[in-house]
């Protein structure tokens, strides 16, 4: 913790301490940020305070897909043009933005808010799995796309979920292969092996 220097007024030392709790902020940075806020115009400081309050008060989890949203259900769940028979399962809400940017997916989402990481004590009970299984009960969903990261933890999570899903629902996994701009020379064997297996014909 940042040691309050003797003589620092209490509100400032409190602000320094609050900044210091943020990830990646050391004691010096915390002091700099605090004094920046102190010198900044009142509206700027107020805007920061309001933004902080709003993010905690107005943002909640979508009761269907667990995405972070201002209105429940979230916009993806309300969008009638989306295909409710396919659910794309992602690790975190930010992944939805990435998939939307890529375009091409018109189904619905489900956010797990994490991946299995047994060595750090993150087990199935820490993920939004129950909510996912509930969504499968209606029978509307026919396919689940596991879009967790292609890491050890992401793969384990995908396999774990595939075991829980009731029969009749198809579970698919995002393809694995080479990212654009990759160098074959430096690509790991597993990725290369899977890229070979997933090769596709070039349409003339």
């Amino acid at each position: 913790m940042a040691e309050p220097t003797a003589g620092t007024p209490e509100p400032i030392s409190r602000l320094i301490e609050a900044f210091h709790r943020l990830p990646g902020i050391g004691p010096k940075s915390a002091q700099r940020l605090a004094y920046h806020v102190l010198r900044a115009p009142e509206q700027e400081a107020e805007a920061l305070a309001n933004a902080l309050r709003d993010v905690k008060q107005r943002i909640k989890f979508c009761s269907r897909c667990c995405n972070i949203t201002e209105s429940d259900p979230c916009s993806y769940c309300l969008d009638v043009k989306r295909d409710g028979s396919v659910i794309c399962v992602v690790e975190q809400a930010l992944d939805i933005l990435a998939l939307e940017r890529a375009g091409g997916f018109r189904g619905r989402y489900h956010v797990l808010h994490g991946v299995l990481n047994p060595m750090d004590g993150i087990g199935p009970e820490h993920l939004r799995l129950r909510e996912l299984l509930q969504r499968l009960q209606s029978g509307e969903v026919q396919e689940i796309i596991m879009a967790t990261n292609p890491s050890l933890e992401g793969e384990a999570t995908a396999m774990y979920v595939s075991r829980l899903v009731p029969p009749g629902v198809r579970v698919t996994r995002l393809a694995r292969g080479l990212p654009s701009g990759a160098d074959l020379e430096y690509t790991d064997d597993l990725t290369l092996a899977r890229a070979l297996e997933g090769r596709q014909a070039i349409e003339p």
């Binding site: 890491s151 050890l152 701009g181 160098d183 430096y186 790991d188 597993l190």
Partner: peptide, 14 residues
């Protein structure tokens, strides 16, 4: 980063 040359070679259990 997606273009890292060491990415796949440093996965846990590798």
């Amino acid at each position: 980063k997606a273009r890292s040359r060491m990415r796949g070679h440093l996965e846990p259990l590798t």
